[in-house]
Design a protein around this nucleic acid. Sequence first.
DNA 1: ATAATAGTGTCTATTAGACAGTATGGG
DNA 2: CCCATACTGTCTAATAGACACTATTAT
Lengths: 273, 273
Amino acid sequence: MKQIWGVCTLDEEFVKREDALKNYNVSDYKTPDGYTSDIAIFTISPKDDQSQEQVLKLLLIKRAMKNAEGEPNIEGGKWALPGGFIDAHNKETAMMAAERELKEETGIDGIFLKHFGVYDEIDRDPRGWIISNAHYAVVNEKHLIYRKASDDAQEVELFSIDDVFSLPLAFDHERIIKDAYEMIKEDMIQTTVAKEFLPEEFTLSELWHVIVSVASHDAIETNANFHRKARNLKFIEEALDENGKVKTAKRFSKKPTKLYRFNDVQVLKSIYR
Amino acid sequence: MKQIWGVCTLDEEFVKREDALKNYNVSDYKTPDGYTSDIAIFTISPKDDQSQEQVLKLLLIKRAMKNAEGEPNIEGGKWALPGGFIDAHNKETAMMAAERELKEETGIDGIFLKHFGVYDEIDRDPRGWIISNAHYAVVNEKHLIYRKASDDAQEVELFSIDDVFSLPLAFDHERIIKDAYEMIKEDMIQTTVAKEFLPEEFTLSELWHVIVSVASHDAIETNANFHRKARNLKFIEEALDENGKVKTAKRFSKKPTKLYRFNDVQVLKSIYR
DNA sequence: ATAATAGTGTCTATTAGACAGTATGGG
DNA sequence: CCCATACTGTCTAATAGACACTATTAT
């Protein structure tokens, strides 16, 4: 590395910012007409009122036919991911804007949120060159009732993921939702994101049903074998009460079940081992 | 889904684009001052002239002290990732711009390239609100000689990844490079990206050394056990010649070695299995 | 008692992983 | 023959995965 430092003396090592900024003309390049964040908000809830089968669902908003001024709204009447423009006046990043939007939808902070892609094709939005940062979030269903109650001006609906693609979707949101779905299925298998769907303390059966409803049966043992295997998984542990005894609860059965919790252990499975 | 479709009659189902665009005023929001792509170009090559130990290296460019007009250049004298502004006049996306830049650096098309993050903090660049799309690429070292030869106006250098963080780095490129390094280590373990460092046909030892030099010994068996295990890996297969016999080659030893190739099988290792 | 969920027992086959040993061929 | 690399043998312990079986308790 010595030859690198040899080319200039110390006091002219770097250009000073104030010298450089005088000469910079940003207008040589076309700049985006808009910079937005969109969020695919996932939850798991029963398929319908009768069934107790849990399925993955996605929250969508029906775009209003008319905007605030009473004029026709762009892509009005179609279903879209919640999202909006990034408030750069308040020094927002795409992630911060997504967090803000997510709080507006759910009323709570601290929800799991992951950036998974950028959609920047020049004609993806007829209003101009509008760049979307795509995120997905995982929310317990109870928090989504908040939004339905707090703002009935817009139609908000939870759709089973399999129903989503038969809806009329705004902009390129079909592509974005497909990518979000692929991403969450992968993460469900390779990361501990399953915990975002579960309470702090959960039963092995609850965990098993989350994995199966998002990914597939291939991702996990049969329920019976999973019980035996669970004790070897490094990233979950039994939930203990103040006396050090394993906590139990009744969930789906009459027999009390042991409760587990995720710990902070990170796992990475190598394809070469 | 029936109640969704009940709210409006068919011929006013969606707003027509031409009606909506008349009312849209994009200037309500601050727009970015620049939209760029940066690329962390990785290669593997011998640590130094003496050693035959292979290490992961990163290509960096030393920013010129003066710009084309002979004025002081922003962040001049510091090392930076190759990259530049997205050419929206030519309908480029961030990915296309990265591909273009990568071709400029290497002279060839079709190199592995992956988008892994967006850096959009409002003050990450003193010139204004300039958004960077970060990618990483994997190139065989031989293609990087091209760039050194084709443009000696700029200083281009390959650094061992461990040396990079003692350099003066422009903008927030230290953060971006750290993230790129974490990402490639993870991908090396969980995906078949290792193939991008290797020729079409390679020996098991070559593959083994790639994994170890990027990830760690934990990601893979010992060299001896890996040989036995290799035949059970779904995503590699023996390279056959036209007579259906396994091809061999001499690489590091006198004894000829079997050649392997990656096939198209995708693997996802579940943490729950 | 029954039903429903929560586990456990048990068996066979395969895999993990350490370590030592054999194979090849240029010098 | 020596050496470096490329494998292969072999052993023990652990895991995979199928399937049958037991456990608990509200009804």
